[in-house]
Design a protein around this nucleic acid. Structure first.
Length: 260
DNA sequence: ATGTCGATACTTTATCGA
């Protein structure tokens, strides 16, 4: 079972790019972020024609997540617990049945948090605390689950080209990295780092300043696995090729293979 | 650390968010 995550930066602008990638890569489940549209504007039919079931949690203009799955959804639950007043569409949890039982997929678009002296940074940290609480609740079920998405977190200095330039950024501040580490300390596995120890492998390159050409990137898109999922992890990688295509997203897909 | 991009609106250029 192949599961991918990809921040596509606008489904209207990236529909055909995503279809092309799905046509050649054919993952079983894809978590996409930043669809930037309302539920009813999502082009579900195009993906259904490729054999995917579609779950959408969108909003106008910003944010928004959608999960595509070749397996039917047993459950679809939008929103992250912990703040009823939070209107931002950033979290979509689904459950599918697999031969060995169930598999839960949390699709998340974690807040960017910049600028750090605005209300956006405390919102990011609070959102990360809510995600930890959700992870704890799910871990108690002792079932396989994947938390996949754009975390907007650079976990380690080796995950960015020039770490010294990022020390005060919301994606790399010590407080941000500490909140991410709490997820790992609960018992979740960073799938990419379980499979790779080479430094400077990136999932995002800014549109500006020739970042892609200079390989000036960030590793901020992650798949975190529960112990019951990590036990079945056989491969993980970043597919950077779509960053070189026409009109690319600034992020590329990251995928795992689970033997379930 | 800014050489860009996507979506939106009292649009055809400015603003916001990343």
């Amino acid at each position: 079972m192949k599961i991918a995550t990809w921040n596509i930066n606008g489904i209207k602008a990236r529909r055909d790019t995503l279809l092309t990638w799905l046509g050649q890569d054919a993952p079983d489940i894809v978590c996409i972020q930043e669809i930037k549209c309302m539920d009813e504007a999502f082009p579900s039919e195009a993906f259904e024609d490729l054999g995917y079931n579609v779950a959408v949690h969108g909003q106008k203009s910003f944010n928004g997540v959608a999960t595509l799955s070749k397996l039917p959804f047993d459950e679809v639950t939008p929103r992250l617990d912990g703040d009823e007043a939070d209107e931002q569409a950033r979290y979509l949890e689904t459950v599918v049945s697999v031969p060995s039982g169930v598999l839960r997929i949390a699709n998340l678009y974690l807040p960017n948090g910049n600028p750090v002296d605005s209300e956006k940074y405390p919102y990011k940290l609070a959102w990360m605390a809510r995600l930890q609480a959700r992870a704890e609740a799910l871990l108690a079920l002792e079932e396989p689950f994947v938390m996949a998405g754009d975390y907007n977190v650079i976990p380690m200095p080796d995950d960015v080209h020039n770490p010294a330039a990022w020390t005060d950024d919301a994606l790399f501040k010590p407080e941000t990295r500490a909140e991410f580490r709490k997820l790992l300390n609960l018992g979740l596995t960073d799938a990419f780092r379980a499979c790779h120890d080479e430094p400077h492998r990136y999932s995002f390159w800014d549109y500006q300043a020739g970042a892609w050409q200079k390989n000036n990137g960030l590793r901020i898109d992650h798949l975190l696995l529960s112990p019951q999922a990590a036990d079945h992890l056989v491969a993980c990688d970043i597919d950077s090729t779509p960053r070189g295509w026409e009109k690319p997203s600034d992020h590329v897909p990251v995928w795992i293979e689970l033997k379930l």
